[in-house]
Design a binder for these strands. Sequence first.
DNA 1: ACCTGAACACCGTTCAAGT
DNA 2: ACCTGAACACCGTTCAAGT
Lengths: 234, 234
Amino acid sequence: MSSPASTQPAPRERLTPESVARRAVALADAEGLDAVTVRRLAQDLGVTPMALYRHFSDKDALLDAMAECLLADVAVPESRSGAWDKQMREVLDAFLAALRPHPNVAELTLHTILTSTPGLVLAERVLELLADAGFPAEHAAEVGTYALCSLVTLVTTEPGRAERGGDAEAYEDTIRAKRATLASLSPARYPHVVAAADALADCANDDAYYRLGADLVVAGMQGVSRRSRRSRSA
Amino acid sequence: MSSPASTQPAPRERLTPESVARRAVALADAEGLDAVTVRRLAQDLGVTPMALYRHFSDKDALLDAMAECLLADVAVPESRSGAWDKQMREVLDAFLAALRPHPNVAELTLHTILTSTPGLVLAERVLELLADAGFPAEHAAEVGTYALCSLVTLVTTEPGRAERGGDAEAYEDTIRAKRATLASLSPARYPHVVAAADALADCANDDAYYRLGADLVVAGMQGVSRRSRRSRSA
DNA sequence: ACCTGAACACCGTTCAAGT
DNA sequence: ACCTGAACACCGTTCAAGT
């Protein structure tokens, strides 16, 4: 029932913080973040639970390392040509591309962006582009934090995403049940919810969903930037 | 050390689902969501752990009820006068006002908006206003979900928020340490992060932070709405 | 109807010990 | 340096019983 990634008897090479974290990410992908316990992870690695404490001071450190695995996959674009909003869009797309394969883990990156090297590289680039857009440093900090957090939430709350991975059948049932519940609400009281039941229960097109999400973030930046420029010149 | 809300010997009235959930929210506010265990909550209520299972089928049901406590506090504006974006802003402000007193609990609302009456009332109003703005039903579903999720994340990730409540001294130390770490990064490699260290570590003005956050969400809606109108007429 | 008490299968983590 | 094994203080939850 569970994916091979989490049930292999384990090749039993020497453990490193990275190999442990990668295995933990695979386990979370396959069975959800709740399945990542010290004891279960140790079992997957063919090792005693306490062996993991040589590589991580405690479980929080393990979770941070998992988040860093995702952030390390962010391919921040090198190019600095074109308008700031076009470049911003490319940076946000790169962030989304790294998060999307790991919806069960994505939320962990929220606390790690400013405490890991790959996170800082990403944050620096976002702040740089916001400075190009004319935001003063304090505003850029808030806008940048908001943007990255919004994208993380987009991934963790993608409509129709199963909390635990694996069981595709039970997953389909959940979607169906959710859609049916929404569709059977009083059309007099909740006309728009009923009309949008399908889209609220599931996401027909993942790419379109993330495109719209990134559009909203960038459009928000553009709108606020324009407005503050206007009020400064007034 | 901990707040009176969680250590009173308990008045020992008859338990109801609502009274248990309210007490759980108070406990989470005071000591963080991790402090909300069945056993600890029962102790606060002066009752045996198993007594709570008369009122909730399992712990997830308790967490859902806590989320519903927050959603029930959302005072969705009655007025339907003015432009859609001005009304939207008022609805989002009402949502934020309900979440802000409970940053440790806010994240729980993400899974409850479409499964509780107060959540549906809020969602219906948001979808209605997005229809006024010209969004087709499928787009409105995604945009509305995005907007509400963004605001939740705004509250749960407010810069400088302590994960566990209570200890104001340790809290100040954490902020100071975080600011110092960011400020001491290489200014050659991370010039914008260093320049924004203060704003990234803490939030000088909470109201301004939330105003800017809501501005970004509404401006994003306006921008995407304008763009899709243009492409339809082209 | 509402609550109790003992028990079960789990947690994260400490500590002393092995190689 | 790296891993083990037993133990401790916690979890959520089941089950049979009390009033």
